[in-house]
Design a protein around this nucleic acid. Structure first.
Lengths: 116, 116
DNA sequence: TCAAAAAGAAACGCTTGCGTAACGGTCCGC
DNA sequence: GCGGACCGTTACGCAAGCGTTTCTTTTTGA
């Protein structure tokens, strides 16, 4: 069953979730970083720098830098691919899963609060 | 009627919307900027720098800079309050309304595509 | 076998955003 | 009318992101 939203509900949901996320979380990931993080956690592995760059429509250094940042935050991990040592496989972490779980809860909560 | 979402739907929606927004729109607003923009367009005016700063839980220069950036993009406008000339009233623009309308459509479209 | 291709990272110069602090207008109470 | 409070902006030094280009390591295939 798809999610049916009115225009007011759609923007209202984005509004309250963004607002709450800004207020609560100091990390302030960019939209790109968030898209990368969700891609890693919601789409079956393996994930590579090149693959993510193609999916997002951005250059490879953008991915490398985002992984640097999110790696420092403990949200993702990098492991060299032993089968083809040119590749780096991006791994999920417990902290990253927790982060997204809380974020998902926030979306659900704010969804419930949307009027109409 | 509130919006009822499963955890998978909530994150899935955020995922596909973020992804599509990254791919399509070069502007790449930060989460803070997006929160400010939505606050201006979804909450009844008047909006001031001080009020937005308090609502978002950030400092005033953050608001000033965000208004600089989004003003340059044509998404918002600033007008001096003639009744109290210390204040600046933030105004909506046609371009800003259009931008959010398209963004709302994107959310609705991606909501329809969420499985389960 | 060895040159070309591929993947990811690093380097470069630049732009933008941040927090703190200081600054000019404007309003208000005494 | 004037000192203090208030509002938004600017200045400052710094951190992080960007695109392009270059580099290193590894694989491929002629």
């Amino acid at each position: 069953m798809p999610v049916e939203l009115t225009p007011s509900q759609a923007l209202g949901l984005w509004h309250t979730v963004s607002l709450e996320q800004v207020r609560v979380d100091g990390r302030d990931l960019t939209l790109r970083q968030m898209a990368i993080l969700l891609q890693i956690y919601l789409v079956p592995p393996p994930h590579t720098v090149r693959g993510l760059a193609a999916t997002l429509g951005v250059t490879k250094p953008v991915i490398t830098r985002a992984l640097d940042t999110m790696g420092a935050l403990g949200l993702v991990d990098r492991v060299r691919d032993e089968r083809d040592r040119r590749n780096v496989v991006i791994k999920r972490t417990v902290d990253g899963a927790l982060y997204l779980e809380k974020f998902g809860d926030l979306i659900i909560d704010q969804g419930r609060k949307q009027p109409k």
